[in-house]
Amino acid sequence: MPRQTDPLPPDDDRVGRDLAAQVRRRLNALFESRLDPDTGEPYTHAKVSRVIAESGWRKVSPSTIGQTRSGENDNPTIKTLDSLARFFRVNVNYFLDEKTVDQELEVVQGLALLDRFKSEGVRSIAFRAKDLSPDGLRVIEAVLDQVRKAEGLEAPKGDI
Rank of each mutant, 00 (worst) to 15 (best):
S61H: 01
E104T: 14
N73K: 11
K47L: 03
W57R: 14
R69Q: 13
T68W: 00
D74K: 13
V90S: 05
T68N: 06
L132A: 09
Y43L: 01
Q103G: 06
P42W: 03
G121H: 07
I78P: 03
P76H: 02
A112S: 11
R89D: 15
L84Q: 00
K59T: 14
T44N: 05
V90A: 10
I65N: 00
D97K: 12
W57T: 09
S124K: 14
A46D: 14
E106M: 11
A112D: 04
V108T: 13
G110K: 07
I52R: 01
R128S: 15
T77P: 03
S83I: 09
G71V: 04
W57S: 12
E106T: 10
R116F: 07
E98F: 03
A129W: 06
L96S: 05
T77Q: 09
V51A: 02
A126K: 07
T100I: 07
K99F: 09
K59D: 08
S49Q: 00
P134A: 13
I125R: 00
L84E: 05
K99S: 12
N93W: 12
K99V: 15
E120C: 06
R69L: 14
D82C: 00
L81E: 02
P42C: 04
S70K: 05
F87C: 01
E106Y: 08
G71C: 03
R123T: 11
D82H: 10
P42V: 00
E120W: 06
I78Q: 02
I52P: 00
Y94N: 03
P76W: 06
P62S: 07
D97L: 10
R58T: 12
V101A: 13
K59I: 06
R58S: 13
N75T: 15
Y94P: 05
